[in-house]
Amino acid sequence: MKINVVRNILEANARIAAENRELFAEKKVLVMNLMSSPGAGKTSLLEKTIDSLKGRMAIGVIEGDIQSSQDAERIAAKDIPVVQINTGGACHLDGNMIRDTFHHFDFDALDLLVVENVGNLVCPAEFDLGEDVKVAILSVAEGDDKPAKYPLIFHESQALLINKIDLLPYVDCSVEKIRAESLKINTQIAILEVSCRTGLGISEWCAWLTDRIAAKGLGIK
């Protein structure tokens, strides 16, 4: 007997992500899903972003890692509410893991929630968390072939940060190639060059992020 079953395989995750999104909208919090390979600079970018925006808005952070709480400790040092998720082997965060952290946050007092995904250029792009924006980081040390090799993450992200731009003289990486290939995959993607070490481009990045809060129709609480 053949049974017609037309269902989204990830429907359970999609349902939870939709509930998360509804809560974030109701609580007027902008949620960003930050994704990159391990070592591209997600936590460093977060530290710089917090330093730059902390006086102007209330920020919370969810740290996703396979194990350890080193990233959460770096963020906690900034006196910011932070929750560490240890996936215990899973290569990505999903909607349910995000929902499980909600009791740690006072959403009524939060303007921006950043989810630092597990370091991985493949899997996190496939799982909706209920976020408003997905942002990818690619560091110049990883090479300019990454958009062509891992197109999904570049296709799904609203912004791409090209990090460690201060290392350009020392690596064989063409920023022009990264730009051209990323725009071929995603014609709408915003591309910003930054260096978390020197601070180059951080104010432009923070302006882009602050604009997203306005674009969602949210004010600063």
């Binding site: 053949k2 049974i3 079953v5 037309v6 496939e126 296709h155 995603n186 014609t187």
Partner: peptide, 17 residues
């Protein structure tokens, strides 16, 4: 340049026997 993806993101079950 086109932005709207109309197919290719499917992850669906269609039928079981």
């Amino acid at each position: 340049s086109a932005a709207a993806t109309s197919a290719g993101r499917e992850l669906s079950i269609v039928e079981i026997e």
